[in-house]
Design a protein around this nucleic acid. Structure first.
Lengths: 127, 127
DNA sequence: ATAGATGCAAAGAGTTTGCATAGGT
DNA sequence: ACCTATGCAAACTCTTTGCATCTAT
């Protein structure tokens, strides 16, 4: 069975407490404040097992390396602000996308990313 | 100015004639049928310049390496088959996603990816 | 003739894996 | 005691870059 180690607990804690998806590097640095000698391989191994058990979700933005966030939250999407480059959760969903796939195709799930200006950047014409 | 070479022409031709986004490897293999000695570095260099001049679009799917497709296809989305791992264009669109973003947010564009089984994989219970 | 383009190989960046050891159960 | 998890380093994959050569203009 899966053991509870200081490393694993630290990694989970960093991801769970984050307000946004984190890169492996950010996760490493965050967890290293609790477990000094933590290595990147351990981060990746834990990310992998967390992903396989669906406790983690990958967030892939164009041109950027993958980021990871806790699955605990309900189904949601992302809003990528083209002004400040932050990524926000969007908890609404267009739903019912089964009918837009070509006939014969079976839709299992979907990912939606919105691009635009967040509330702050919308209110600030020129940063 | 930009020169017209056999390599560049072959690379463009492969991408333009594809009905789906292609990986650098697929582009290399396709273009090599026309230009035997073509190297991967040349593919990447051309992808880069095509991207910079907006003649190409990156398609970045979670957990996948980037794929490339020619710009100028009308607005569409992607369907990622979890069976054969190919990516298909989806020309329908749920449209009108402005209202699902938080208030104060301005939506400029959106990306939608469907996951499931393509027609071939849907018809083949066990590969 | 000249400057951009190519091919090769080496270099980078990110991620994975083999192996000996530490540590949870 | 057993056996998973870790740390380190090497291996791997994907992408970029340096350099000599080629070639379109």
């Amino acid at each position: 069975m899966e053991r509870s180690t200081r490393q694993r607990d630290a990694i989970k804690a960093v991801i769970d407490s984050a307000q946004r998806p984190l890169s492996p590097q950010e996760i490493l640095e965050g967890a290293q404040t609790q477990v000094a000698g933590l290595g990147m391989a351990t981060v990746y191994r834990n990310l992998k097992s967390l992903l396989e058990s669906n406790r983690l979700t990958v967030v892939t933005l164009p041109g950027e390396n993958p980021r990871y966030e806790s699955t605990g939250h309900s189904h949601h999407h992302h809003f990528h602000c083209t002004g400040c480059d932050k990524v926000f959760d969007v908890h609404h969903c267009p739903g019912d996308l089964l009918d837009i796939a070509p006939s014969g195709f079976t839709v299992e799930r979907h990912e939606l990313t919105l691009y635009g200006k967040c509330d702050v950047c919308s209110a600030t014409p020129n940063p």
